[in-house]
Design a binder for these strands. Structure first.
Lengths: 199, 199
DNA sequence: TATTAGAATGAACACTCGTTCATAAACTAA
DNA sequence: TTAGTTTATGAACGAGTGTTCATTCTAATA
């Protein structure tokens, strides 16, 4: 078994440090020590600290909810909309609960306002994915008379805001809630939401 | 008119830098230059950089929603619950939209996961204020049969999550939405919410 | 086995960091 | 005015920052 390339380990450890101390707070030397090499060796793989950061951003930008979660199997369940929402939400949580995603959202929340961040990332951009999918879903449901008539943009945000708070606070936060608790909270939200919008 | 004390100006400028670059990214020298003094003079007023940060935290910890927003005049409007929620939300937004609060929430979002932050602050703690007030409000409404029976904890979060997202993204974010737009978004949320819970 | 490209090293660079300290200036109270 | 206190200064500190570079090691290719 070939072991992971140094470049990947650097990215891995960099994400770990960035997620704990922020971009400015983490140092090349700390990252290098975690990888098990000297700091100068880092520059055989990346041109600068910023390039490491941007490489991480790029890595996560390429993972979209639609790619990772929405598939035919799930879409087949659209005939039972409430169940569809529950399965969709559960998969969302599983996806967000992966170690990488947990760290990434922390970096995002920390760096969204800084110079290095604001030019390249924006929290809206990363939310857009979930939002646009919600708009699609609820737009379709609305058209088919499954749910009441609403502004789909508002609907999408009403559904997504709670989940986003759940993500940043409960999933990626420091208080380690068991995953079942998080499932429960999400399900209660879907219940509340569905009860509000169903035709 | 006596001019502001140096100590207050230091806090003011420190908040500004922290909100733009984070705690680790902002330096004593930058802050000192903004104040118009040398960095060594800072230490006549604060023992360390960390003490400045903690002083800022303390300052904002003492401002609670209940103190700043909830007063008798507002509570008198509880007879018209929907209107009460709208006025309450509008005041919340006005409060969150003050320059100081806009900067503070940024610092909070940035530092919530860092070492210096996590030992002293937590995003939950600062949300608790709004949450507990919501629980109180909705608990009372539920008891009086004004709204349907719900788990008040869930209700509180359903109401607060959207507003929190509005705050971090639209009010304190970099895209400068006109305040009227924000009012509109909030009112649409209250409409949706009220429509879902009213008896 | 000899050659070569990629990766790691350790020392060094110029800089910035937070903090300290003796000293000087500015303000207050007697 | 004088004495005393607070505040500001500028230089210095040790440590840490990101980055460079000549050199050595390693592993695959010829």
């Amino acid at each position: 078994m070939k072991r992971k390339s140094t470049k990947k380990i650097i990215l891995e450890k960099a994400l770990e440090h960035f997620s704990k101390q922020g971009y400015a707070g983490a140092s090349i030397r700390q990252i290098a020590r975690s990888v098990g090499i000297r700091e100068s060796a880092i520059y055989n793989h990346f041109e600068s600290k910023e390039e490491i950061f941007l490489a991480l951003l790029y890595q996560f930008k390429s993972q979209t909810i639609s790619k990772e979660i929405l598939n035919d199997e799930l879409l087949d369940q659209l005939s039972n909309p409430e169940n569809f929402l529950k399965v969709f939400t559960r998969r969302l949580i599983d996806f967000w609960n992966t170690p990488q995603e947990r760290k990434f959202i922390r970096v995002l929340l920390m760096e969204q306002f800084t110079k290095i961040g604001s030019s390249e990332i924006s929290i809206s951009e990363y939310l857009t994915d979930l939002r646009s999918i919600c708009k699609l879903i609820f737009g379709e449901m609305s058209k088919n008379g499954i749910i009441k008539k609403f502004d789909t943009v508002v609907l999408a945000d009403e559904f997504a805001a709670f989940l986003f708070l759940l993500r940043s606070e409960k999933i990626s936060g420091d208080e380690k809630l068991p995953i079942t608790k998080i499932y429960d909270l999400a399900e209660m939200h879907v219940d509340f939401f569905w009860n509000s919008v169903k035709a």
